[in-house]
Amino acid sequence: MADDPISQFQISRLVPIEIGNLDFSFTNSSLFMVATVAAAGGFLFLTTANRGLVPGRMQSISEMSYEFIANMLREGAGTQGMRFFPLVFSLFMFVLVANLMGMVPYFFTVTSHIIVTFALAMLVIGTVIVYGFMKHGIGFLKLFVPHGVPPLIVPLVSAIEVISFLSRPISLSVRLFANMLAGHITLKVFAGFVTSMSALGALGVVGSILPLLMTIALTGLEFLVSFLQAYVFAVLTCMYLNDALHPGH
């Protein structure tokens, strides 16, 4: 493994596949996405396979994650929002497990690539737009016309509202990606200090305790960030779905 903090984000082709002129290779990123889905799905399936009325330790983790997202969705988008539960729950579990798997040394962090988080955000915003127009028809566009604005400046305000709406998938994806990328780089830089300082002799070894402590603290912080970002992603998804369900609110 190379020492520089960026090489951990390198994409490498594991199984080169080319259809036409397009590159459909199975990369290390794809491998970890499959692993994420397998881990999340497998965990939920196995822990609820022989479920009891009184849940065991593992079963209550599954039930807690269900309750957590269900409550979030009910608060964020109302009871009607529960029809999007499968989407929000899958997104949350995918992001959470991908973030947590990225914390294992030598593992690849799927969510540290903006194209992955952007695809997830586009899925959310696509659902909002499609469902919004399906449910409210052209009335969904009322979302972009604020109430109580003088008619003269409505076009201007609407244009700003439209751009603000379109910027949501970008800010949603940038937030997740930036947090993961920056966190992993910081972690790697401080861990790198430990090795390079201890190469300087006895004094260096003593001095390297400081970056080592920092690395330990950052690891804890990164676990927090992993969870927090999955949470934020799910909360914002609920908020945007709320617009699709009730564009007037």
């Binding site: 751009i163 603000s164 910027s167 949501r168 970008i170 800010s171 940038v174 937030r175 930036a178």
Partner: peptide, 8 residues
């Protein structure tokens, strides 16, 4: 990210 997204 909110600010940059708007400009982008």
């Amino acid at each position: 990210s909110e600010f940059i997204a708007g400009i982008a």
